[in-house]
Computed example of a mutant assay.
Amino acid sequence: MESLFFLVPVTLLLVGIAVAVFFWAMRSGQFDDLDSPAWRILHDDEANSSNPARPDDDQPRP
């Protein structure tokens, strides 16, 4: 029973911190665009196509 006097306030403090971090993330725009980062990885090859790798890159150089 004595441990509850310690654990309940600690739990309430941690929940309060979690709620504060969640609202901070909401205000700073962390959840504004959830779809674009997933699609961005598919379009990276177009930006790198102007600098193709040389075919002899995997050959050891003397």
Rank of each mutant, 00 (worst) to 15 (best):
M1V: 11
S3M: 14
S3Y: 15
S3K: 10
S3L: 15
S3W: 14
S3V: 15
L4E: 07
F5D: 15
L7C: 09
L7W: 05
L7N: 14
L7R: 15
V8F: 10
P9T: 08
P9V: 07
P9C: 07
V10H: 08
T11S: 11
L12A: 12
L13Y: 03
L13I: 12
L13T: 12
G16V: 02
G16D: 01
G16Y: 00
G16T: 02
I17F: 07
A18L: 02
V19D: 03
V19M: 03
V19W: 03
A20N: 02
A20V: 07
V21H: 06
F22V: 09
F22S: 06
F23I: 06
F23L: 05
F23M: 05
W24H: 09
W24V: 11
W24A: 10
A25K: 04
M26T: 06
M26G: 03
R27H: 04
S28W: 00
S28L: 10
S28A: 10
G29E: 09
G29K: 04
G29C: 01
Q30N: 08
F31A: 01
L34Y: 01
L34I: 10
D35L: 14
S36A: 14
P37Y: 01
P37M: 02
P37L: 03
A38M: 10
A38Q: 03
W39D: 15
W39G: 12
R40T: 03
R40E: 06
I41M: 08
L42W: 12
L42F: 15
H43S: 14
D44N: 10
D44R: 15
E46H: 08
E46K: 14
E46N: 09
E46T: 14
A47K: 13
A47N: 09
A47C: 04
A47F: 08
N48K: 13
N48E: 15
S49W: 08
S49F: 01
S50Q: 11
S50W: 13
N51D: 13
P52K: 04
A53V: 15
R54I: 02
R54T: 04
P55G: 11
D56C: 05
D56E: 15
D56Y: 04
D56L: 07
D57S: 10
D57Q: 07
Q59L: 11
Q59F: 06
P60H: 06
P60A: 10
P62G: 04
